[in-house]
C-alpha cells in the first residue's frame, strides 16, 4: 500500500480499496467510530473477564478467576438462603398441632404450598398430578379413605406407607383366590354376582344366593358381613360406587382371582416430619378429608 495507489471516489469523497469488479469499485468506508469504540471496549472487557471470572479450560479443571465465581456454589447458597428464610415458618409447622395449623390462615397457606410442591415431587407419579389416581392407585380427591381420612390418619399412612418396608407399615393382603386355587372358577363367578348385588346393582339372584356362604367364609373377615369394609385392614367398602380396581363384573372377578394390593413406600426418613405434615394437610384439603 503506497500513497500513489490511493484513489478517492469523487462522488462520496471516500477512498477506494483498489478492488474493482467489472468497473464497480469498492469504497473503503471507515467503520463508525462509536462501533469501533464499542468493539475495542469489548476486547478490553473480555481481558478483564478472563482475569476475574472462570474462563479457560485447562488439562485438569479450569482457570477459576479472581472472583472464584461458581454457579454451583451460588445455587447451593441460594438453597441455603431459601431454607433459612423458610426456617421460621418451618419450625412453627414442626411444633404446631394439626388443628392449630388448620385454624391459622398464614400457616395453612404455607403448609398447603409446601404440601403441593412435595406432592408433585413424590406422590404424583402414582396418584397423578391432580391426585386423581388411576386403577389401583387411590383417588385422593374423593371421600373414600381405605386407611382413614382424618389428618392424623393421612399423616400416619404417609409416614409408614402401605405394605412397605417399614416395621409399622399399614399391612393387609387379599388372597389370590383364583390364582392360588382357593376357589373354583364357578365360585368366583358366583361371588362376583354377590359383590355386584352388594353395590345395589342388578345381579343373578341364584348366584347371589349360592355365594352368600362363600362370602361369609372367605371375605367377611376383612370386608365385614355386610361388605362395608374395615379400615383395620384397609379393606374397601364393597357397597359403594367407588372401585379401586374397577367396578364392572369382569374387573371384580379379576380382582377376586388375583387379590391385588398396591404398595406405597414409607416416607419416614425420606421426607422431613414437617413435609409429611404439609403433605397430609394438602391431601386433606383436596377433597375435604374426613
Amino acid at each position: 500500500m503506497t500513497d500513489h495507489n490511493k484513489e478517492v471516489d469523487s462522488h462520496s469523497g471516500t477512498e477506494t480499496t483498489g478492488h474493482e469488479w467489472d468497473g464497480i469499485k469498492e469504497l473503503n468506508t471507515p467503520l463508525p467510530r462509536w462501533w469501533l469504540g464499542i468493539f475495542y471496549a469489548c476486547i478490553v472487557w473480555s481481558i478483564g473477564y478472563w482475569v476475574v471470572m472462570p474462563a479457560w479450560p485447562m488439562i485438569n479443571g479450569y482457570t477459576h478467576g479472581m472472583l472464584n465465581h461458581s454457579q454451583r456454589v451460588n445455587v447451593a447458597n441460594d438453597i441455603a438462603a431459601l431454607k433459612s428464610a423458610r426456617h421460621a415458618s418451618e419450625s412453627k409447622l414442626a411444633s404446631a398441632s394439626m388443628d392449630h395449623i388448620q385454624s391459622n390462615p398464614d400457616l395453612l397457606q404455607f403448609a398447603l404450598a409446601e404440601g403441593k410442591a412435595a406432592f408433585g415431587d413424590n406422590c404424583a407419579p402414582c396418584h397423578g398430578s391432580g391426585a386423581q389416581g388411576s386403577k389401583g392407585y387411590p383417588n385422593l380427591n374423593d371421600d373414600v379413605w381405605l386407611w382413614g381420612g382424618k389428618l392424623a390418619d393421612i399423616q400416619h399412612t404417609i409416614t409408614v406407607g402401605v405394605r412397605s418396608t417399614s416395621a409399622e407399615t399399614r399391612q393387609s393382603q387379599m388372597p389370590a383366590f383364583g390364582k392360588d386355587g382357593i376357589l373354583k372358577p364357578a365360585q368366583i363367578r358366583d361371588l362376583t354376582e354377590y359383590v355386584v348385588a352388594l353395590s345395589h346393582r342388578p345381579a343373578n339372584a341364584a348366584a347371589v344366593k349360592r355365594a352368600r356362604q362363600l362370602f361369609s367364609d372367605n371375605c367377611a373377615a376383612c370386608h365385614g358381613e355386610d361388605g362395608k369394609g374395615n379400615r383395620e385392614f384397609g379393606a374397601p367398602n364393597l357397597t359403594d360406587a367407588d372401585w379401586l380396581y374397577g367396578g364392572s363384573p369382569q374387573e371384580i372377578s379379576t380382582q377376586i382371582y388375583l387379590g391385588r394390593g398396591g404398595v406405597m413406600p414409607t416416607w419416614q426418613g425420606r421426607l422431613s416430619p414437617e413435609t409429611i405434615k404439609s403433605l397430609a394437610i394438602y391431601v386433606h384439603s383436596l377433597g375435604g378429608g374426613e
Binding site: 374423593d142 359403594d240 383436596l286
Partner: peptide, 18 residues
C-alpha cells in the same frame, strides 16, 4: 374450576367439582 381432575365421583355415586 379444577381441571385435574375435572370431577370426582364420591362413594354414594354423587359427583363433586372443586
Amino acid at each position: 374450576r379444577d381441571r385435574n381432575p375435572n370431577y370426582v365421583r364420591l362413594s354414594d355415586g354423587s359427583v363433586r367439582n372443586g
